[in-house]
Design a protein around this nucleic acid. Structure first.
Length: 284
DNA sequence: CACCATGTTCCTTG
DNA sequence: CCAAGGAACATGGT
């Protein structure tokens, strides 16, 4: 479940459930996920530790752990990759097929399930330091965005996926923000006007704020089963007349009429990722 | 079989 | 050194 809003909603969901829980045992099913620690080293660090707080940075979950006999806290860093999920199950519940790590908490267990195993759960925090500003934080101003884009000639869509520019934007919301701002995904960063950057800045924040709000409002199921309602950011996934059906205006809508002008939405490949845009509303 | 998928990192090339 | 592009990672859906 990856972009910033989904992670934010997950963090809010998990925080009260994990608070003060103690890790009694650790099971690592994919050692790649906990790199660079070995399963033994990882377990040793985690075992006996208590969850003190949970926060988020970009798409990363930050679990603060406290060991009884240790003065300093330890930071456990989680990333969901493309298909990761984290939730609590009763201790006796069967594990899903693609479980990568389980933290046993007594009557419950914390499950990290990840079909494609691109996610991480690790004590290595180096990647956090390279992140850009939080898109909804006070430091992310119009000027900060303009500065971060700099004189790069890269297409703006590609640049927006660079986590050093804004932390937490991903492929879906980058397309959505560009559509709302009326900016072509192909526009080189250094050709954007101040006005375009200002519109982009505002719409990045808006689209993410709305997504967080949407995810906080809708009842979500995080545990293994229960259909596709966990993908609240997938406009189509939940079926029926979901009120977030309308949320995604261009993503995965190639061929559908643009909601603003009626022109067919197009798909374009940039840096090996799909971009969706309206060729009429997002001209250069 | 082909192509696509919410992400990051590493390697190569210029 | 930097920027940019592509492959790799791994599994499943259409």
């Amino acid at each position: 479940m990856p972009e910033m809003p989904e992670v934010e909603v997950l963090v809010r969901h998990l925080a009260p459930l994990l608070n003060q829980q103690v890790i009694q045992q650790v099971s690592v099913y994919r050692s790649k996920v906990i790199r660079p620690d070995s399963p033994r080293a990882f377990s040793q660090k985690a075992k006996g530790a208590e969850f003190v707080s949970l926060s988020r940075r970009g798409k990363y979950l930050l679990f603060a752990l406290h060991q009884q006999d240790r003065a300093a806290q330890r930071l456990l860093v989680g990333h969901l990759g493309m298909t990761g999920r984290m939730y609590l199950l009763p201790a006796e519940a069967p594990l899903p097929k693609h479980t990568s790590v389980v933290l046993h908490l007594g009557r419950k267990k914390f499950v990290f399930e990840d079909t494609r195993y691109f996610g991480r759960l690790t004590f290595e925090a180096a990647s956090i330091a390279r992140l850009g500003h939080e898109p909804l934080g006070p430091e992310f101003t119009r000027e900060a965005l303009a500065t971060a884009l700099g004189r790069s000639r890269q297409p703006i869509k590609v640049k927006l996926l660079d986590q050093r520019i804004v932390a937490g934007l991903g492929n879906i919301y980058a397309s959505e923000a560009l559509f709302r701002a009326g900016v072509s995904p192909r526009a080189p960063c250094n050709r954007l006007s101040r006005a375009q950057i200002a519109r982009l800045w505002r719409n990045i924040r808006e689209v993410l704020r709305e997504a967080v709000h949407c995810g906080s409002t809708v009842p979500l199921s995080y545990s293994g089963q229960g259909g596709q309602d966990r993908f609240f950011y997938f406009g189509r996934a939940a079926g029926t007349e979901d009120y977030y059906q309308e949320r995604l205006r261009v993503y995965d809508r190639a061929g559908c009429p643009c909601g603003r002008c009626g022109a067919p939405i197009r798909r374009l490949v940039q840096a090996a990722r799909s971009t969706f845009y309206c060729p009429h509303c997002q001209r250069r």
